[in-house]
């Protein structure tokens, strides 16, 4: 009996079990401390749709054995470039959003290719190098946001006239363009952001489908056992670059969806730490440094956003103090440390 219980816990994973029970507990307590369950559910769904794609973006790189993408910010930057350039061109509505997507993808391909080349050169040290590449890219772009000759008055500082604002509203361009698409209400407090969810689902489908093609199969084999792949005539380095480009593109799309939902394009230091919550979420969902499945993405995004939504409201009402930020730091970084210390499965 004890053995079986152990087996079950091992299967689901202790951290996941703890976090899920914690989340459940929060939902149970919520009504007693004056937090509405339906608004909470609404928030969780909205955040899930908003952040899910960023979590999904980690998928191809884990699959190909490149590890956790600590340089996710590169994709985010591609997305930001797409967003601001599309705004600069003053294309509004759906066309504006599509334009942003196209520009983002172009940048993501370029960034992803260079980033992938670099990661191949530093095999074994990918994660630490990626972290700092991500950080330096963000700080480099901070300089660029100041210097690039953007002219749209909606985006530049009202007084100085030079340089982009730290936050730019998407209002009037493509604010909630996906969220409001086919959205509907359940009860009085739950709005389903159908468009954003559909877009997320579409990307999941594309990723899933890719891994059923010849190239995707090769990518999975490279991640599973690079020596095997090499002995089958696969160019391992090339496949790894493909996965990095793929991840970077999805991250770029992820930030665009995030912005249309959030309502603002956040520049300068805002993307600096964006890799960590996404990584924490996918790990929370059951992925490891070397293994991932689609349900890890979905479950992880849901659990992580659930915790982020529920802790501030419930805990703050419960103990009358704002511990949510601290709890977020401990959970998300603790999750990453835990994953990094787990031994990779020894081949024997």
């Amino acid at each position: 009996m004890n053995e079986r219980l152990k087996g079950i816990i091992e299967n689901i994973g202790l951290p996941r079990l703890l976090i899920a029970s914690f989340l459940l507990l929060l939902f149970i307590i919520a009504p007693f401390v004056g937090v509405r369950v339906d608004t909470s559910i609404n928030d969780v769904i909205a955040r899930f749709a908003m952040n899910g794609i960023l979590v999904l973006s980690l998928f191809p790189m884990i699959k190909s054995g490149c590890g956790l993408n600590f340089g996710l910010q590169l994709g985010v930057i591609a997305g930001l470039l797409g967003a601001v350039i599309s705004l600069e061109m003053k294309v509004t509505g759906f066309a504006g959003f599509v334009l942003a997507i196209i520009i983002s993808i172009v940048f993501a391909i370029i960034f992803g290719y260079l980033y992938g080349l670099l990661l191949n050169k530093v095999k074994g040290e990918e994660m630490v190098v990626a972290t700092y590449v991500g950080f330096s890219a963000v700080s480099f772009m901070s300089i660029m946001w100041l210097l690039l000759p953007f002219k749209n008055p909606d985006m530049i500082w009202a007084y100085g006239g030079e340089g982009l604002r730290t936050t730019i509203s998407t209002e009037g361009y493509w604010h909630h363009i996906l969220n409001d698409f086919l959205s509907f209400q359940i009860g009085s407090h739950i709005t389903i952001p159908t468009g954003a969810l559909l877009f997320f689902a579409l990307l999941c489908l594309i990723v899933w489908a890719f891994f059923r093609t010849k190239a995707g199969t090769a990518m999975e084999a490279v991640g599973s056992n690079p020596d095997y792949a090499r002995s089958c005539g696969i160019d391992v380095d090339r496949v790894r670059i493909q996965s990095v480009i793929f991840s970077t593109i999805i991250a770029a799309l992820g930030i665009l969806v995030y912005q249309q939902s959030f309502g603002f394009i956040q520049l300068y230091n805002a993307p600096l730490m964006m890799a960590f919550p996404a990584i924490a979420a996918i790990l929370l969902g059951g992925a490891s440094v070397t293994k991932v499945k689609m349900w890890n993405v979905l479950l992880g995004a849901l659990l992580f956003q659930g915790i982020l939504t529920m802790t501030p409201s419930v805990i703050n009402n419960l103990i009358k103090s704002d511990m949510s930020e601290t709890i977020r730091i401990i959970i998300s970084n603790g999750m990453i440390v835990y994953a990094l210390t787990r031994r990779m499965k020894v081949r024997s």
């Binding site: 960590f276 601290t326 709890i327 730091i329 401990i330 970084n333 603790g334 990453i336 440390v337 990094l340």
Partner: peptide, 8 residues
């Protein structure tokens, strides 16, 4: 990452 975690 441990540094970030311990910050919490």
């Amino acid at each position: 990452m441990l540094g970030y975690f311990m910050n919490g």
